[in-house]
Design a protein around this nucleic acid. Sequence first.
DNA 1: CACATTTGACCACA
DNA 2: TGTGGTCAAATGTG
Length: 267
Amino acid sequence: MDKSKEKLVETLISGRNSAKRLQNILRRKVDNDGSVSIDNLVMEVLGSFAGSLSVLNSFHWGEFYGVPVSPRVDLACSVDRVPGFYSRETGKNRAPGVRQRRGSYKIRRTIDSRVITSGTIKDGYAWRKYGQKEILNSKFPRCYFRCTYKHALGCNALKQVQKLGDESNRFHITYLGHHTCPPPNTFAHPNIIIDRKDSNVHHDLPNNPSTVTNVHIDPSLKHNLSAPNDAHPFSALVWKETMINDIETFKNYGILSDIPFAEVFFS
DNA sequence: CACATTTGACCACA
DNA sequence: TGTGGTCAAATGTG
């Protein structure tokens, strides 16, 4: 998949996730008598994303699930790489003086940002560090994080963390953009067991939804499930993308009705 | 092996 | 042009 198509898919996924979240918010706010037309409308929006994505002929479901289909090749960088070069001085495989050439960066946008001061950098979300920078007149470096699900779920939330002082142990945390992925888990439900590729059986939620291989749900919850249908074309995807806090959140996100039987094993 | 982190180069922008 | 945000290969970790 080339860069532009990759970007298109990413944008569509992001839009579809936003529509899904809007649907869940509306479901909570509107009573049953008025929710039908809203639900239909959101389903139309989701259907548009489904149709658009299916039109992309090189689209792979594996990529939708966050699983790379083929090794990623960065043409811009690979051109100037020196295979096999190793410098004993630098300990690097990059030849000195050989500059990497990259494609143009995206135009940097001014996006919504909030700054807080906190004694901890933990906020429940899964973040992946992608950079660190020495800041002028600052004793400590600034660290850059993006949402772990940037590629898997198209979530573009960012955060910057900077330690304030060695004795205070407090941090300035800047959040840029908003999460489009579901909120983090607070605790796992004992009646839901998640199998993962990378380990055995887990009651807790996986860091990477794409590692989920099977889901075991207590038979007592069976009445909450329904088979996939035309109205839920992404049922399997919805499950794999979604972090589950507890049964209530599970219901609020409309996930219980979205799990296809093929993905569920009743033990 | 699959991710996460480190790190220096690349790039946007004031 | 300097500063700081981002990228991505190398490296670390479980």
